[in-house]
Design a protein around this nucleic acid. Structure first.
Lengths: 349, 349
DNA sequence: GTGAAAGCGCTAACAA
DNA sequence: TTGTTAGCGCTTTCAC
């Protein structure tokens, strides 16, 4: 076992006291070359490794750190958040440690536990929505008085939150499509484990109610959060639907799903935006590099990361006496080439 | 200050001993309701937070963990590595903590220091190449007997390594282009801080030497590792070059650069693969979702992540007595639609 | 039920 | 130059 060997084992083997070994390790001078060598040999022979916790953390409190748990590594959205969070943390003298739940709730729980175990000063977490309401690890944080902020609302938990107004964002981009003249719009919605997904469905629906169009639950097709899901669900959806029965616009949960859909439409030889307009949410950089530059609701990811980190730090340094804070960020429409008026309207004009 | 409050402060305020407080915290029963309540109140009032290090790590050694440091969050390549690493680690009962250097050497150093401080059992790191040979933090790991494995070779440091044969990979895909009939090929190379970039340039050159074509240093254009760099350098390169002077193929450092280039070519109205063939390296998922499905050298990212983690764990559990190991993975050509014979050849046939 | 005391691995005075 | 001792914050016997 690696860490079983203690400083005293080394001392004994070298025939000196533990203090001397400590001095050698920390190069505190004051050690003769000969004993130094003996100690070094003993360390080598025993493969000794100082226990970092005992070494520093017990006395002073080590480097300030924040744990950050995201939902998936494959979404550039999180890369943006992470980079901004790291920057903000560094500015304040904190370091960030990351972990990704990859959509698995137990992984999320273990990540949080690990951070607690490693004694981070605070945690930022983009939680998975939980049907079973298993918020144990979050309540555990509360119990332990460890400051944390959420990047997505969780039902039944009052806590610090940095989030965007998803209902509004989805409503706005759907309205944009409706005003373009689209009447038959499909929404490829997000994963079930996400509050954001629910909120965007809600926004989609509200846009319909705002207009004169009738809304049907059939307009919502569950997709997910990844490229593949946009592709597969998109392919399945458009494949066996005769052109006249086809929606003229697809509002996707996020950019990845939209880009996946773009691939499906390309393979089906359906023109974007000629036959179908496509929109995403997030405005990840890839939008400009997609087969058709993507119209999307831009989420201020960098601000989110920064705001979240600044919020935890505030909580940490206030000693937890703070009331829960909430920051709500707004998404912003960016029009690119993947949207246009539907053909009928376009040609009628 | 958050963590200044100790168990003794709580004990004092509650008028009990620290042992009782400990019992309350750990729900060890054996505490009367009334004192329990008093203690809880004191904890609340003082906003007490047990020090996790003292709590567990000093005695038993806490959960097994591995630190993973990657170069950039924005490359799906690393997402693949990370996910595989996490899986492999979990299987063996270890947890992964992540950090990204984002191309900055001091960030890398701080990440490693943090992991050391947090007492991880081992570290996997994709190091930045260093012109100034500042390997202090890596030597520090050696000195401290902390097992680590590298995901990219570093000159002047003998250590555990999981890497791919970049020279071979670059040579192979360049040869593929040459055999397609291309004579005028440009290489958009990787960032300066990367050994992989150097090796791929070398492979590119060797392919020329293998053939009858003459090689010129002008064929290599420094780009980078990101979408934007492929786009910007590609735009600059092709923009003011008359068609007859234009290369008929572009071999890019990685897929991101290639996809960036695709965007530039689209904006310049240069057809891919009609006028210019484009290749990448890595085979990230995005390749299939690019404006033109991308021909690329597929790197076994998942195997890399897994192999690296299994290697550190082996080292950890062997107590560091292991000799440095090396695993060399091979890349594999995947042909898609972004490559074709050059026009002259194509029409001559 | 509760408290006193020892000890986890290490560093930091202080003595020798 | 080296060893002795106390103490970091906590858990854990073991008496009371």
């Amino acid at each position: 076992m690696g860490s079983r060997v203690t400083i005293r084992d080394v001392a004994e083997r070298a025939g000196v006291s533990n203090a001397t070994v400590s001095n050698v390790i920390n190069e505190k001078g004051k050690v003769s070359e000969s004993t130094r060598k003996e100690v070094l040999d003993a360390i080598d022979a025993l493969n000794y490794r100082p226990n970092a916790s005992a070494q520093r953390k017990l006395q002073s409190s080590g480097p300030k750190s924040i744990g950050l748990v995201v939902k998936e590594m494959h979404n550039p959205y999180f890369a943006d958040v992470i980079i901004a969070a790291q920057e903000a943390a560094n500015e304040k003298g904190y370091s960030i440690m990351l972990s990704s739940s990859e959509g698995k709730r137990d992984t999320e729980g273990r990540a949080v536990d690990l951070f607690v175990e490693k004694d981070v000063d605070g945690i930022v977490i983009n939680p998975l929505l939980d049907r079973d309401a298993d918020l144990t690890h979050l309540f555990e944080l509360k119990r332990r008085n460890i400051p944390f902020v959420l990047l997505e609302r969780v039902r039944g938990l009052r806590s610090n939150l940095v989030d965007i107004d998803n209902v509004k964002a989805a409503r706005e981009i759907t309205t944009y499509l409706i005003e373009l003249g689209h009447k038959n719009i499909v929404h490829f919605s997000g994963p079930e484990y996400s509050m954001h997904a629910e909120e965007r469905i809600e926004g989609f629906r509200r846009a319909f109610f705002d207009s004169k169009l009738v809304y049907s639950e059939d307009y919502v097709v569950r997709a997910g959060a990844h490229l593949e899901e946009g592709y597969e669900k998109g392919l399945a959806y458009f494949q066996d639907r005769p052109p006249e029965d086809r929606p003229t616009a697809a509002m996707c949960y996020n950019d990845l799903v939209a880009i996946g859909l773009l691939r499906a439409l390309r393979e089906l030889d359906i023109d974007v935006p000629g036959e179908v307009s496509v929109t995403g949410v997030d405005n990840i950089k890839t939008c400009e590099y997609a087969p058709v530059p993507l119209t999307t609701m831009g989420v201020p990811t960098a601000e989110m990361g920064r705001a979240a980190v600044e919020m935890v730090i505030r909580q940490i340094e206030a000693g937890g006496q703070h009331e829960p804070e909430t920051v709500n960020l707004q998404a912003e429409l960016t029009v690119r080439e993947s949207t246009a008026p539907p053909r009928e309207v376009a040609s009628a004009e």
